[in-house]
Design a protein around this nucleic acid. Structure first.
Lengths: 211, 211, 211, 211
DNA sequence: GATGAATGAGGCTTCATTCAT
DNA sequence: CATGAATGAAGCCTCATTCAT
């Protein structure tokens, strides 16, 4: 956990450091990301980082959380929930893709957060990686259950799991050269990719929606 | 690509090095994995690694490919394809989980292969990561189409994509402390996990199978 | 260019490191000179060198420049310019030899600076190698022209080039076992060597001086 | 000294290895030149080099000598000695420049031979570096003395030394970006460079020639 | 005589972290 | 509280040389 010093920092400085750290870890991952580079780019002393964070991992998990907040707010949080449930999901995936298209740094950082391999780092961001979006989504699902938009016997855990699965896939595959086993996303237009993304939701609708 | 020296090596030595490298990269990932450690554990001279491989990345991608082959053969390759299509898938996911339970090293390496963040390493193993399993699965799907087990209008790309998605999820989530947003896999018995895995396939069956 | 850290270093520490680096590169040249050895002999951490210099080449060119300054000041810079022009030159070569006799480390480093083979290193010290002494000598030549000590049609570029040529030769030949094709410098007394050096100047005088 | 095995080698193989070694050492110098690279480029086994030569230094000095022979034959050896002495010298410097212009590899190797810094390597090629050309030139000078083309009191050692000095300078300066303190050789045409080279000889003529 | 696999020392450089100022 | 110099372990990689085949 960051120190009090960090919390007392002027917001703009804190934001600047966070942004730079996200860029660095997003590009290189936790292990290969360099505190030297972050300190240099953020124009702060190397030692200052250790006044704000206990160690490298502390910094990493802090910016992971910050990134996840930003992303959730800018995607799931923006969606009009006054639509049919599966339209909400379709809106989310489209917004999700739009957000990452406009902010490649956040795209990479979200990917790094979800896919960190180093055991310690993984332990630190693990809940963030998946659960953050789950927290944002579960109320939406619950509302759909309450309004009777899903099958009576619906398994909401399964549904949640698969929505997050889909989002994680759409966080990486469209931005990689060979990200998907079946779709050549990197050769497709944004609109076509959006269409494919919607079809993932179609599958969920056919399986979880009312007959 | 590995050197001729590598290909001429006695099989047992080659296997030993591969195994150790898989353990190292599986635990630490590409960037944090150490050639020093691999050489030491494999009891060969540090310099020898560079007689076998052009550089670290060459070693990494070689063992990635070797690992993927092993895994595909030991999971998808073992399944009796004389069953109904979705039973095949259910058999695959169960075998998939069983294989990784018995070989945690391969489990981690498969995860590392699919989730490497470093751009260069990612480029090198990218096709391996997804397409390898895709190659094994597509014939199975095609057979199901031919035998009329799927909807007439079925989108096989979408199906393939989601199967691989599911497999990748089952490569990591059950082996992580907080791997799934909805299911507490790490508190569940193997049988319960198998049951959940089958439910992912149920979803696919309801969406893609005959009404 | 060295870092600010280097410039802020206590002068004695900076001098110690410079001196040791000059000794190392003077003996082995750029390529074969070892940063490990320099760090060990200077009793600083290996990593510290990289707080002072961007890389090996940066260190090399810095100490080349420092060495050249020292040498120019201790030779050309010391000469009384209130003499006839060719006497000035004779004083310079004698002082030049005296300086290098007393400081073999500087002698070797000056040689290494002028004769580095590695392309990158050569590019970095190239102007230092020749032009540094040229800058010190040209004013002296211009004064001689102004005072009418040279032929009316004198080619000052040619004269300058040949003076530097001679100095470079006297930087190495007298200190090598078989440094000169004609004179067995290593079997000669210092006085005899001084006398030969003066004869090189005699040649210039006969060619460039007044009839 | 090379082994008998080396001497018994087919001439074309020996020439190929020599040529490749000259290219490597000419580019990188002795220390940084790599036997690995030479063996690879010459398409022979690394171990074979050690059947031909005692060690790296043995190879280096062998190819230095071979290079010097080639150069002397292709420059000094080609000149018509039936001219006035200083015309001979002028022909030599022009031919010298022409040869190196056409064979940059030999140019660099000659430079490397003359300027090696490593003490051991230097000891091995030292006599080659200067004396080889001296041996070729001294008979020419003696002939000039005999035919009375030089001053009665001429110091032939000094003359020889300065001729070699000049040749060594013309081996490097015109091929370097900032090779000469006074002349911007790299911005000059070949003809202009030839003209400057002749002026070095003019100086010698005025100093050593008949009044 | 030729090969080329094996070696391990050593190369330069980057790193996270500490601590005196 | 901020700084930034210092550290030394560890990183990847190249090297000349040996020796069994």
């Amino acid at each position: 956990m960051p120190t009090e010093t960090w919390r007392n920092l002027p917001a703009d400085k804190r934001d600047r450091i966070t942004k730079i750290a996200i860029a660095e870890f997003g590009t290189k991952g936790f292990s290969a990301g360099s505190l030297n580079v972050i300190a240099r780019d953020a124009e702060i002393a190397k030692g200052s980082l250790f006044q704000y964070f206990a160690d490298k991992l502390d910094l990493f998990s802090t910016v992971c959380a910050a990134g996840s907040t930003t992303i959730a707010e800018a995607t799931i949080g923006l969606i009009d929930t006054d639509q049919p449930f599966f339209d909400i999901l379709r809106s989310i995936v489209v917004q999700w893709l739009a957000f990452f298209r406009e902010d490649p740094v956040q795209q990479r950082m979200a990917f790094a957060t979800a896919n960190e391999i180093d055991a310690d780092a993984r332990a630190a961001v693990r809940s963030v990686a998946n659960d953050f979006y789950a927290a944002a989504l579960r109320p939406v699902i619950d509302a759909a259950v309450a309004s009777g938009e899903l099958r009576a016997d619906v398994d909401t855990d399964l549904l949640l799991s698969m929505v997050v699965l889909t989002l994680r896939h759409l966080n990486s595959a469209p931005f990689d050269l060979a990200g998907d086993p079946a779709f050549p996303f990197h050769e497709m237009t944004d609109d076509d990719i959006d269409a494919v993304a919607a079809r993932y939701i179609d599958v969920l609708e056919r399986a979880f929606g009312l007959a």
